[in-house]
């Protein structure tokens, strides 16, 4: 469970906080959705959870451990991140994208890392991409490679930022099915403004608006709640 306690984050030189004393719990589910329109603060929240930003006040706990107290290695074993722009390493092959951190950071031997990476790619159905470079694969394939790269560290949670932003409708559907299958082993937290996609993959979630929680619970209910005022 990811627990956020009284989280405030104010950007340098900003008048108002982007996150206004947020307190919320993300139960460990297959896929949990963090929803909200652009500017709602969900990316700021993601950056705080991923330790890319240090909260102005408040704390974040993953499985009852304050993330601020974790070592880098421990933390990255706990939580993986896949960026909206994926940020694959363009100078490295797909296989090397996967093996770099296990080898250089976690001290796995290169041959073991390669073996694990090939297994991972096979498991995710992209085994044939191993020797390609990021520029040589499609957006949907790159999305899966980025997730595979994150999964190499075997995190308990995977945070996906706007996973569908670069995918067309068909690819989004394929991806949803693929993610659902994968989520039986790893808990995914998807941060998205794509509500239909969220409904496809997640049962529960939270809805953020202007730095505050507007709704929590069943994704279908949330959608109804947030869509009612406008309809």
């Amino acid at each position: 469970m990811i627990e956020i306690r009284d989280l405030i984050y104010t950007y340098p030189n900003a008048d108002e906080p982007a996150l206004k004393q947020l307190s919320v719990q993300f139960p460990r589910e297959n896929v949990f959705a963090v929803l909200g329109q652009s500017g709602s603060g969900k990316t700021t929240l993601l950056n705080c959870i991923a330790r890319f930003l240090t909260p102005t006040s408040g704390s974040i706990h993953i499985d009852d451990k304050n993330i601020a107290d974790m070592t880098a290695l421990e933390f990255r074993h706990t939580l993986g991140v896949v960026f909206q722009r994926l940020n694959l390493f363009p100078h490295l092959s797909v296989l090397r994208n996967l093996t770099l951190a296990p080898e250089k950071v976690f001290g796995t031997s290169l041959s073991d890392a390669r073996k694990q990476a090939r297994e991972m790619l096979e498991r995710l159905g992209i085994g044939d991409l191993a020797d390609r470079y990021p520029a040589q694969i499609s957006g949907g394939q790159a999305q899966r490679v980025a997730i595979a790269r994150g999964l190499m560290l075997q995190p308990s949670y995977m945070l996906l930022d706007e996973p569908t932003s670069a995918l067309d409708a068909q690819t989004t559907q394929d991806f949803a099915a693929w993610l659902t299958e994968l989520s039986s082993e790893t808990s995914f937290i998807i941060v998205t403004h794509d509500l239909p996609f969220a409904e496809m993959v997640a049962s529960h979630g939270v809805y953020l608006s202007q730095g505050e929680i507007q709704a929590t619970g069943n994704v279908a209910d949330i959608l109804q709640q947030v869509q009612q005022p406008t309809s």
């Binding site: 890319f52 880098a72 960026f83 722009r85 951190a101 950071v105």
Partner: peptide, 18 residues
Amino acid sequence: VDQGQVLAAKALAMNRMQ
């Protein structure tokens, strides 16, 4: 070099030198 590359490396627990 895109700043996203640095973030990606950070997300993979790499230190600054790595």
